[in-house]
Protein backbone atom coordinates (compact mmCIF):
# COMPACT_ATOMS: atom_id res chain seq x y z
CA UNK A 1 0.00 0.00 0.00
CA UNK A 2 1.35 3.38 -0.94
CA UNK A 3 0.27 6.82 0.17
CA UNK A 4 -1.07 9.70 -1.88
CA UNK A 5 0.23 13.20 -1.51
CA UNK A 6 -2.47 14.14 0.96
CA UNK A 7 -1.97 11.06 3.10
CA UNK A 8 1.75 11.69 3.12
CA UNK A 9 1.20 15.25 4.30
CA UNK A 10 -1.08 14.08 7.09
CA UNK A 11 1.45 11.46 8.18
CA UNK A 12 4.16 14.11 8.08
CA UNK A 13 2.13 16.49 10.26
CA UNK A 14 1.44 13.67 12.71
CA UNK A 15 5.15 12.85 12.80
CA UNK A 16 5.95 16.51 13.50
CA UNK A 17 3.46 16.56 16.37
CA UNK A 18 4.67 13.37 18.04
CA UNK A 19 8.34 14.21 17.56
CA UNK A 20 7.76 17.64 19.06
CA UNK A 21 5.90 16.02 21.96
CA UNK A 22 8.67 13.44 22.44
CA UNK A 23 11.37 16.11 22.55
CA UNK A 24 9.18 18.26 24.81
CA UNK A 25 8.66 15.40 27.25
CA UNK A 26 12.41 14.71 27.28
CA UNK A 27 12.99 18.41 27.91
CA UNK A 28 10.68 18.32 30.94
CA UNK A 29 12.36 15.25 32.43
CA UNK A 30 16.02 15.63 31.42
CA UNK A 31 16.55 19.39 31.28
CA UNK A 32 13.98 20.73 33.73
CA UNK A 33 14.40 17.57 35.83
CA UNK A 34 10.68 17.19 36.48
CA UNK A 35 10.30 13.51 37.44
CA UNK A 36 7.66 11.73 35.28
CA UNK A 37 4.87 10.07 37.27
CA UNK A 38 3.66 6.58 36.42
CA UNK A 39 0.81 7.79 34.20
CA UNK A 40 3.29 10.03 32.36
CA UNK A 41 5.37 6.95 31.70
CA UNK A 42 2.41 5.10 30.22
CA UNK A 43 1.77 8.03 27.86
CA UNK A 44 5.45 8.13 26.91
CA UNK A 45 5.25 4.43 26.06
CA UNK A 46 2.51 5.24 23.53
CA UNK A 47 4.09 8.50 22.32
CA UNK A 48 7.77 7.70 21.71
CA UNK A 49 7.26 4.75 19.30
CA UNK A 50 4.95 6.92 17.17
CA UNK A 51 7.91 9.16 16.32
CA UNK A 52 9.73 6.13 14.88
CA UNK A 53 6.81 4.28 13.28
CA UNK A 54 5.45 7.37 11.50
CA UNK A 55 8.91 8.24 10.20
CA UNK A 56 9.26 4.74 8.77
CA UNK A 57 5.84 5.20 7.14
CA UNK A 58 7.04 8.34 5.36
CA UNK A 59 9.87 6.65 3.44
CA UNK A 60 8.81 5.05 1.25
CA UNK A 61 5.31 6.48 1.67
CA UNK A 62 3.16 3.77 3.25
CA UNK A 63 -0.40 4.58 4.28
CA UNK A 64 -0.75 1.24 6.09
CA UNK A 65 1.34 2.71 8.90
CA UNK A 66 -1.97 4.10 10.15
CA UNK A 67 -3.00 0.56 11.14
CA UNK A 68 -0.08 0.44 13.57
CA UNK A 69 0.01 4.06 14.66
CA UNK A 70 -3.70 4.64 15.32
CA UNK A 71 -4.01 2.06 18.15
CA UNK A 72 -1.03 3.64 19.92
CA UNK A 73 -2.55 7.11 19.56
CA UNK A 74 -5.94 5.91 20.85
CA UNK A 75 -4.35 4.25 23.88
CA UNK A 76 -2.53 7.54 24.45
CA UNK A 77 -5.81 9.46 24.29
CA UNK A 78 -7.40 7.11 26.84
CA UNK A 79 -4.48 7.42 29.28
CA UNK A 80 -4.25 11.18 28.87
CA UNK A 81 -8.03 11.62 29.45
CA UNK A 82 -7.71 9.64 32.67
CA UNK A 83 -4.69 11.68 33.76
CA UNK A 84 -6.34 15.02 32.98
CA UNK A 85 -9.51 14.06 34.88
CA UNK A 86 -7.31 13.04 37.80
CA UNK A 87 -5.47 16.36 37.78
CA UNK A 88 -8.66 18.36 37.64
CA UNK A 89 -9.98 16.42 40.59
CA UNK A 90 -12.80 14.74 38.68
CA UNK A 91 -11.42 11.33 39.61
CA UNK A 92 -10.38 10.82 43.24
CA UNK A 93 -6.64 10.26 43.64
CA UNK A 94 -7.28 6.96 45.35
CA UNK A 95 -8.50 5.69 41.99
CA UNK A 96 -5.10 6.35 40.44
CA UNK A 97 -2.42 3.73 39.99
CA UNK A 98 0.29 5.98 41.41
CA UNK A 99 2.56 4.79 44.13
CA UNK A 100 4.96 6.64 46.33
CA UNK A 101 7.31 8.98 44.59
CA UNK A 102 5.60 11.38 42.25
CA UNK A 103 1.87 11.82 42.56
CA UNK A 104 0.06 11.86 39.21
CA UNK A 105 -2.39 14.40 40.60
CA UNK A 106 0.37 16.95 41.22
CA UNK A 107 0.58 19.65 38.57
CA UNK A 108 4.26 20.38 38.09
CA UNK A 109 3.85 22.75 35.17
CA UNK A 110 0.86 24.79 34.04
CA UNK A 111 0.86 27.21 31.11
CA UNK A 112 -1.88 29.84 31.33
CA UNK A 113 -3.02 28.18 34.53
CA UNK A 114 -4.59 25.06 33.03
CA UNK A 115 -2.35 23.67 30.28
CA UNK A 116 -0.53 21.01 32.29
CA UNK A 117 1.70 18.35 30.79
CA UNK A 118 -1.15 15.77 30.53
CA UNK A 119 -3.28 18.40 28.79
CA UNK A 120 -0.51 18.86 26.20
CA UNK A 121 -0.29 15.09 25.87
CA UNK A 122 -4.07 14.81 25.37
CA UNK A 123 -3.98 17.55 22.74
CA UNK A 124 -1.25 15.83 20.72
CA UNK A 125 -2.70 12.31 21.01
CA UNK A 126 -6.19 13.54 20.02
CA UNK A 127 -4.89 15.55 17.07
CA UNK A 128 -2.79 12.63 15.85
CA UNK A 129 -5.60 10.10 16.31
CA UNK A 130 -8.04 12.41 14.51
CA UNK A 131 -5.64 13.07 11.63
CA UNK A 132 -4.71 9.41 11.23
CA UNK A 133 -8.36 8.38 11.22
CA UNK A 134 -9.13 11.12 8.70
CA UNK A 135 -6.36 9.91 6.39
CA UNK A 136 -7.99 6.47 6.11
CA UNK A 137 -11.36 7.77 5.00
CA UNK A 138 -12.36 7.26 1.39
CA UNK A 139 -11.86 10.17 -0.92
CA UNK A 140 -8.51 10.74 0.63
CA UNK A 141 -5.66 9.72 -1.56
Amino acid sequence: MTAGRRTWSILFICWLLVTGATLGSLFFSEIMELPPCSLCWVQRIFMFPLAIILLVGLFPPDGSVVRYALPLALCGVATAVFHVLLQFGLIPESASPCQQGVSCADVSLALFGFVSIPVLSLAVFSAVAGLLYHSTRSGCQ
Binding site: W8, F12, W15, L16, T19, G20, L23, L26, F27, I31, L55, L58, F59, P61
Partner: peptide, 21 residues
Protein backbone atom coordinates in the same frame (compact mmCIF):
# COMPACT_ATOMS: atom_id res chain seq x y z
CA UNK B 1 12.06 16.84 -1.78
CA UNK B 2 10.00 14.97 0.82
CA UNK B 3 13.17 13.64 2.30
CA UNK B 4 14.57 17.15 2.40
CA UNK B 5 11.45 18.44 4.17
CA UNK B 6 11.73 15.77 6.84
CA UNK B 7 15.46 16.30 7.29
CA UNK B 8 15.01 20.05 7.68
CA UNK B 9 12.12 19.51 10.13
CA UNK B 10 14.12 17.02 12.19
CA UNK B 11 17.18 19.26 12.25
CA UNK B 12 15.06 22.28 13.28
CA UNK B 13 13.44 20.39 16.11
CA UNK B 14 16.78 19.06 17.32
CA UNK B 15 18.25 22.55 17.14
CA UNK B 16 15.28 24.03 19.01
CA UNK B 17 15.74 21.38 21.71
CA UNK B 18 19.44 22.11 22.14
CA UNK B 19 18.86 25.88 22.16
CA UNK B 20 16.03 25.65 24.68
CA UNK B 21 18.15 23.38 26.88
Amino acid sequence: SRLQIVIVAAASMALAFVLAA
